[in-house]
Design a protein around this nucleic acid. Sequence first.
DNA 1: GTTAGCACTCGAGCACAATGAGTGCTAACA
DNA 2: TGTTAGCACTCATTGTGCTCGAGTGCTAAC
Lengths: 349, 349
Amino acid sequence: MSIDLNERGRAILEAIVDDYIVSGEPVGSRAVSKRHNMNISPATVRNVMSDLEEMGFLASPHTSAGRIPTEQGYRYYVDSLLQIRDLSAGEKLRIESHCQSGKLTVENLLQETGKALSSLSNYAGIVMAPRFTSTVFRQIEFVRLSERRLLVVFVSQAGLVQNKLIEVDEDFSPRELEQITNYLNETLSGLSIHDVKEKIASEMQQEKALYDKLMKQALELSGKALEEDVAGQIFIEGASSFLGQPEFAEVGQMKKLFEAFEQKSRLVELLDKSQEASGVQIFIGSANTYNQIEGCSLVTSSYQNVHGTIGTLGVIGPNRMSYSKVIPIVDYTARLVGRLLETGQGKEK
Amino acid sequence: MSIDLNERGRAILEAIVDDYIVSGEPVGSRAVSKRHNMNISPATVRNVMSDLEEMGFLASPHTSAGRIPTEQGYRYYVDSLLQIRDLSAGEKLRIESHCQSGKLTVENLLQETGKALSSLSNYAGIVMAPRFTSTVFRQIEFVRLSERRLLVVFVSQAGLVQNKLIEVDEDFSPRELEQITNYLNETLSGLSIHDVKEKIASEMQQEKALYDKLMKQALELSGKALEEDVAGQIFIEGASSFLGQPEFAEVGQMKKLFEAFEQKSRLVELLDKSQEASGVQIFIGSANTYNQIEGCSLVTSSYQNVHGTIGTLGVIGPNRMSYSKVIPIVDYTARLVGRLLETGQGKEK
DNA sequence: GTTAGCACTCGAGCACAATGAGTGCTAACA
DNA sequence: TGTTAGCACTCATTGTGCTCGAGTGCTAAC
């Protein structure tokens, strides 16, 4: 459907998108004709532009302005015209120095990565840790806060720490907690949280698990702790870069955008989806987050270590973002983060 | 210095601040005179307003506009004129339901609290967990991620979980780690992190600690983990409420504001300061965060449990914020959060 | 198929006047 | 002496009409 563009049509569409990405203003026929000694007159360009508009790649805000790309226009541009340049050594270094600054929390590392993405791309960086359910269990610890309140700390294979407050019906002694902890750590190590849940459910069904009161309690406790799924942590950095973008000059729209960032749940959904695919994915405009934020595009990639996908990261910017710049940044960063969260498990075996 | 205001001056200042807080527009003499059958003519009001301006409580944006309060004006208003109303049962309930929604992470609880503050006040809510150094040590765990990388998990008395990646020189076996863990948990429990650091330093100095290699390693490890101070986690929620406030219509200023929110370090400093005092504190305009964000005021309170102060929370809004509404919200929330993070330690003894 | 020419459209920017809210001052009043 | 009415003045805001120019679409010539 979109291959019915001849050489000249492609060149002109590319020129318009390129220009519009840097200027943010409608591009006229004269500008295209002059640009890079493309030897055709403005009048000819106008004819082609008119065709492109009819095909849905361009739109004109009003009669006497130039043309701007439609979402479909960007889509074609990204899919068929874009030349992806490599990162310079300097850029790579900048990303690395951001992500490796000293002794960090895993959460901090992800947050710093978000900042790196933002500062290199000049748009907003977004990094999501995995949904808890999809992580691989490594270790569990219980901390008794009061008679009826326990703090449960999980550590995933990748080193992500998740904690939860739970209320219990009976008072556990430190000794009991220790035994429960040991039992669970032995039983569950290496399973995904999803499997852990299933295992707990099935063991509790079978009577054989019940002969030992402690074991039963252990299962009950961990079941309780896993009851509600904790949404993946999500870090958005550099959202302020949207302020100043001319297309978001209207306060109302800007407010919607920031509220969407604060709410996060929609974003989690979207990133969840992109987690399955590998490599860089690009969501343009309304194609991304169901009508919530207009005019925004998203470049994402999942990152993984030897155990599989850990999470997703990317950049959110206006539709009119510099894809050729952003795509390699996201790609490189995803690989780097995957490597940094390598657990060395491979060497252990 | 500020008591030299007669009854009428006070009434007029209060009227102006009240009006300005709701309207956001300069208040004229006529409006004040009409307001609540204050039986004086606009002309008289003008005289008084002129005096108030001379004293520094009011300012006029330009000749033919009304007056707006200066920072000093707000200060006086807050210190001497403000009547603080109690929260309605409904409001209390709303805060509680926000903070107690199900089984939460401690971090989530703090974050939800920020949202509650924001949604009730209609400004931005801010919640800070304590600086790590000022928390009380409860438990430490080591997780071996690879030969040279350990994940250290600390739990504080209040149930806050902090984790850190550290690099080590030698490979520890699970057995060794367990011994180290036990040793540290016994030795350090109940001390503040600050004291823990000192203890480690002093023990390592004394030769007597060195006869046991394991003990030495334990101290080294924990010393390493505590080397760099982790800044207190800070949650800012509802920053988007600033969008739409007329005084931040200019994009440049708005951008500065959001960048300040993203940076956070300045805010941490400020909240640190307010941590020492007890009760609700109010920072108005330039008095708060050294010139970074103009026109913003901050209402904060620290929250504590039986072990002392845990952290600080509050509301950030424009100078022109509804203090009478915000102050009781912040006050009540701080008490509530303190209670929710109660560890029941008192009953244990 | 391409291009030059031309009439037409429409937003941006500017000057100008009208409006009106609000002030400061002065003089009269209680 | 403190209060008030009256009045001239200031100045941001709003609306109007105007020009300017960028850009288009169409037609006719190449």
